[in-house]
Amino acid sequence: MNAWLLAAAALLVGTIGPAIAVALHGPSHRRLVGADLAGTGMPVVFLLLAQGYSRTSYQDLALILAVLAPAGTLVFTRFLAGERG
């Protein structure tokens, strides 16, 4: 149980948990805030787990998620409020 796994556990409870809690209720554009925070937090958790288990090849997972999560959020914003006028 090294510092990296401890930090990953703290992030899962302290950041991803509230993000999911926010994303569970409320109107759709307010849920988006939770989804976006989870999209930022999860790559960091993946990086910490990769470092904690000393398998640096798993960093690619965080790289892919860091590229795709913002794209997903932008698609959500396009559908939620993208119509002109």
């Binding site: 109107p27 590229v67 913002p70 939620l80 409020a81």
Partner: peptide, 16 residues
């Protein structure tokens, strides 16, 4: 990516 999405979410929130 986080900055861009924060601005996009902010714009969506204002428009809704």
């Amino acid at each position: 990516g986080g900055t861009v999405t924060t601005m996009a979410v902010g714009r969506t929130t204002v428009r809704r």
